[in-house]
Amino acid sequence: MMSNDHILNPETMPQSPEKATLEGKNKFLGLWFFLGGETVLFASLFGTYLSLKNSTAGGPTSEELFGLELVFIMTIMLLTSSLTSVYAMYHMKNNDFKKMQLWLGITGLLGIGFLAMEIYEFAHYITEYGFTFRSSAFGSAFYTLVGFHGGHVTFGILWLITLMIRNAKRGLNLYNAPKFNTFSLYWHFIDVVWVFVFTVVYLMGKVG
């Protein structure tokens, strides 16, 4: 590790520190490969949801269940957290570690806020409507799809906290810049999935 120090902490940071090393290039390609696979995973969950959406077994339908206010706030929160992680990468490219950490922190807080509202939403459906995973095929498909997205948010938050704490004293270098960039791409992808969740599940569910 010591012998590589001059590579990891160069005297002038390159323009794209996240892709300056072979490790960084590989992480970059690897994450995009992963996102391609995730696309198919979520497609199968969306397809299942669309197929089972009307199988309510006498329970509440999507039109009776969903409200738009909470989903709208959740959407804005996640979209804003996507922008704040763009800001974090902006400061990474300017080699400003403190500001990058600050914006990553804001991203994490917005993510936690989103997650809290999702948990509230699920709790509301369960206690007020008795709408659970076992209520109907619609219930199973709904909680699997939206819950899987929520699981991705949870994983992202844990990943971010680990990254921020682990690298807090290291500062920015060519070893950890790819790690931050990889997280940021993953976090954008979570927002991509959410765009389809709020469109297909909530908005189309409200239309009928």
């Binding site: 995009w32 490969f33 996102l35 391609g36 995730e38 696309t39 199968s44 397809g47 669309l50 197929s51």
Partner: peptide, 25 residues
């Protein structure tokens, strides 16, 4: 270029998946 191939490849498989599930339903 590679990210585009992966995302469009993923999107293509995603469309086939949803189309397949829609057809059998």
């Amino acid at each position: 270029e590679m990210p585009s191939i992966m995302i469009y490849g993923g999107a293509w498989a995603a469309i086939l998946t949803i189309a397949g599930l829609a057809v059998i339903t």
